[in-house]
Simulated assay, not measured.
Amino acid sequence: MIQDTIWWHVYPLGATGAPVRDRAGDDSGHRLRHLGPWLDYLVELGCDGLLLGPIFESVGHGYDTLDHYRIDSRLGTDEDVEWLIAECDSRGIKVMLDGVFNHVARTHPAVGQGLAGSTNWEGHEELATLHHDDERVRELVTDIMLHWLRRGISGWRLDVAYAVPSDFWADVLTRVRGEFPDALILGEVIHGDYAGIATAGKMDSVTQYELWKAIWSSLVDANFFELDHALGRHRAMLAEIVPNTFIGNHDVDRIASKVGQAKAVIAAALLFTLPGMPSIYYGDEQGFEGLRTEGFEADDAVRTALPASPDELSPLGGWLYTQYQALIGLRRRNPWLTRADLEVREKTNETITVRVFNSAQELLIDACLAPTPGVRVHAGGETLYEWHAS
């Protein structure tokens, strides 16, 4: 099933070195093809899905869309995305696109047509909220989603899905699934009733921000009681949906900067052994660092450019890449983990033991922060993975 996919999440404008704000000097190119050398890397890492951030024509950062049918000129052309999808398909890589259907750029034609513009989105004057109760908007979003599914993508990430009325998603996704019943729909949800939002909107999955927060915060504060609480909520969610688990994305601080390189291994171990559909933000597997700042350049540090090919990566991240490979390999050998149950067996501030299980199998994850950070995954007395900071 597509929910068993392990995604490599890329922010294309940043990863390919495109100009995000000042487009005057370098406004065109075929940068999507820069991702070509990274497709074999993705497979060798153990992933089988490419989750792309915005690729459609936009004003600046990609979430200020101007045309959902046209590839951003900084990234290339229609032929470039056709090439990328074909290259992914030849390697068994599924492609998911980022659909920004809550708002559009203030200069989007939809504003002049009365489909958007009555309110700014979250105070951003350059963004106009779409009128989701307008049948024309529902038809437009349905057509956009179908257009790219017909081109060969496997699913959609719905940006700020939590801000759009659930009846809009339920209506649009019912129409989309009439032609593509197996399309994966991942909604971005930051707070609220995760499973309720997914169910009401007929989404397959939502971003599990609660678990992301608990993982890094527990590691920073030496407080696994917080993780225990979040895992209880995660368990309840698993009864209804398969949430998207992650420890990094384009909107948050790099995990290695947040918790340190050593504890980042523990975070990765939890990501790949806990139930859910994991995604890896590009570079986290190499220990990329970056902290968000303020203002227009707030996200630049976490949306960095990739080198021309994996051969040009710094050797400093190789050790962490090896740990990711081992953990993803463990996940691949135990596909039942995606829909498993869980319980916390023991916990202190600095240690936790989590049992992940179904009716026939189980894994135990032992994580500790002292005297040195470490993690062990075992089953039936056999150690399946172990790492400790030296």
Rank of each mutant, 00 (worst) to 15 (best):
W216T: 01
D159W: 02
R106Y: 12
T174R: 15
W169L: 12
E226H: 09
L186D: 08
S154P: 00
I153C: 02
T107R: 13
L184G: 08
S118G: 09
L173R: 03
D159H: 02
T107K: 13
A214G: 12
L173Q: 10
D204Y: 06
D182C: 03
P165D: 08
H147D: 04
L149A: 13
D193N: 15
E188Q: 08
E139M: 04
N223H: 04
E210A: 10
V137L: 00
T174M: 06
V141Q: 06
R106E: 15
W156H: 10
S217H: 14
W156R: 08
D204V: 05
T119Y: 11
L127M: 14
L173E: 05
A200M: 03
K213M: 13
W169R: 01
D171W: 09
P165I: 09
L149Y: 12
A170D: 14
M145W: 12
I153Q: 03
D133Y: 01
D193H: 15
V111R: 06
A161C: 14
I190Y: 10
F225I: 00
G187M: 01
H108M: 07
T119W: 05
L219Y: 11
S118C: 02
A183K: 05
K213T: 15
D193G: 12
R136M: 04
G196Y: 06
E126M: 07
I190Q: 08
H124K: 11
H147I: 02
E135Q: 12
L211R: 07
A198E: 06
A128G: 10
V137R: 01
F225D: 12
L158V: 05
I153W: 03
P109R: 14
H229T: 12
R150I: 01
D171R: 07
I144S: 02
W121M: 01
A170T: 04
A214K: 11
L227D: 03
W156N: 11
Y209S: 14
V137A: 00
W156T: 09
F224G: 13
I215Q: 06
D204Q: 06
T129D: 02
L146H: 00
D167W: 15
V176Q: 03
Q113F: 01
L227K: 04
I215F: 05
A170N: 14
S166L: 02
T119F: 09
W169H: 15
L127C: 07
G187V: 04
L149E: 12
V206C: 09
V172S: 07
G196I: 08
E125F: 11
D204R: 05
S166H: 10
D133H: 11
T142A: 13
I153R: 04
F180K: 06
G178N: 10
